[in-house]
Structures are given as C-alpha cells and as structure tokens.
C-alpha cells in the first residue's frame, strides 16, 4: 500500500539514525498503519476512504517525526554521522565497497591503536619514526589485500550483492587471494625479514578454508539472507517520492 508507506516515510526519513534503526521504525509504524487500514476497510468497504481514515487516525507525519526525533537516544544521531555506520547493511553491495569499508575500519583501528603504539615504540627508542610510519602504512595496505579476496569469496558463496552464486568465482577469489598473499610473504622474507618463520606461509591456505567454513555455517547464512532482504526493503523505501501523495 504505497500511500501508507509514503506517510510512514515522511515521518522516518528526516530522522538522523542508522539504517538498522530506520528499518525497524519503518516496519513497526507500517504494521500499525496497515492494521488501522484493515479495520477501516472493513468499516468503509472502500480502499481510498480506508487509506484516508487510517492516515487521519495515525496523525500528521511531520508531528510524529518531530516527536520521534526527541524520543531517540542521543547516540543514534551520533552513529548516523559515522559514514559506515549510517548504512549498517553489510552485504548487499559490491565487493569493492565492502572491502573499502573494511579497510576504512582497519585505518580507524590503526589511528586509535597503531599510532599511540608506534609513538610508544619511537619514544622508547625501540623503532625509528620512519620505520614506524612505514609499518603503519604496510599494515593498513595489507588489510586490503587480506580482505578483498575473502570478502569476495564470501559474496560469491552466498550470491549476495545482486550476483548469482558462483563457485568458479569463489575459487578464483580464493586462488588470487592466496597467490597475492604468498607473494607478499615471499617478498617480506626475501627483502625485509629473512627470519620470517615458514609457518606464516600456511596462513594464505588456511584463510580461504576458514572463510568457506564460516560462510557455510547456518547461523551466518540466515544472517546474510535477513540482511540482504532488509537491504532490498530499505531500497524500496528510499525510492519512494515524498513530494506528492
């Protein structure tokens, strides 16, 4: 029922909240409005009269929106300001965008943890400033190399972000991920740290197996399915035009 969705969206769209909260409020308000509509349809026997009566009973969207703004916790709007929290949906996007977000989270982690840690190392003369910065960039870049193949592999196993499931593509992501990582470890052993233990070379082979096992676990499969459906529903809501009823 598009008119009812528009009425709800007028109340919810102006709110500065995370995508997850937005979806929950939309769902709750729409369920209520549909309940009123069903009652009114039984009374009037006419759909458009029932819609009007339901909207009248529910109250003006602007007023509900204003009241909702005052009733939500302060951290909702704070979280909505963080770009990758504003859209909390994890999977129904491209591999590149998910990897970008993962990388940004890695950068944030290194800003919070890595920089103070590097400062401590430099201050206690355990590492030079240039080396600390180099290490910082190396780890931040490595997180992309590590994430992209495995996020891509996960997506191909589930067929998320609008792709069809593709075993061939999942294997391709795994193989390319393995080779790139092996290459990096090889270069590190050759030029940076010759004492790098050989056990490190097992990580690129273990990681795809762990991703495969995780991706096939039933709890996670359900989570991805729910998340994908939620993303599709959010897309429907965002496409609604609120300029005219």
């Amino acid at each position: 029922m598009k008119e009812l969705m528009i009425h709800v969206e007028k109340a919810v769209r102006p709110l500065r909240i995370t995508q997850g909260q937005r979806g929950a409020i939309r769902e709750e308000l729409l369920t209520h409005l549909q309940g009123i509509y069903d009652e009114e349809l039984e009374r009037h026997g006419d759909s458009s009269a029932a819609v009007q009566a339901a909207i009248e009973r529910f109250g003006p969207a602007e007023e509900i929106s204003r009241n909702l703004r005052g009733s939500l916790p302060w951290y909702s709007s704070a979280l909505a300001c963080v770009p990758w929290c504003a859209r909390m949906r994890t999977w129904p996007e491209s591999t590149g965008r998910i990897a970008w977000r993962a990388w940004m989270t890695g950068i944030l982690f290194w800003v919070i943890v890595g920089i103070p840690w590097s400062c401590v190392l430099v201050a206690t003369d355990r590492m030079s400033g240039g080396r600390a910065i180099g290490l910082w960039f190396l780890l931040a870049s490595y997180s992309v190399v590590f994430f992209v193949p495995f996020v891509g592999m996960f997506g191909c196993i589930h067929g998320v972000y609008g792709q069809l499931r593709s075993t061939r593509r999942a294997v391709l992501f795994a193989v390319v991920g393995c080779l790139v990582q092996l290459g990096i470890y090889f270069l590190i052993k050759l030029y940076v740290k010759p004492t790098l233990p050989l056990g490190v070379f097992v990580i690129p082979f273990l990681a795809p197996l762990i991703v495969f096992a995780t991706a096939r676990s039933s709890g996670l499969m359900k989570l991805v399915r729910t998340d994908t459906q939620r993303g599709e529903r959010a897309g429907e809501w965002e496409q609604l035009s609120l300029s005219g009823d």
Binding site: I25, L29, F58, G59, I64, N67, G70, S71, P73
Partner: peptide
Amino acid sequence: LKEGSLYPALYRLEQ
C-alpha cells in the same frame, strides 16, 4: 489519541 504519537512515547519508555 493520534495513534502515531504512541511510538515516540513507547521509545522513551523503552529507553
């Protein structure tokens, strides 16, 4: 009662 006004109250109570 305007029924939509119930939800801000419910969210406040929940918080």
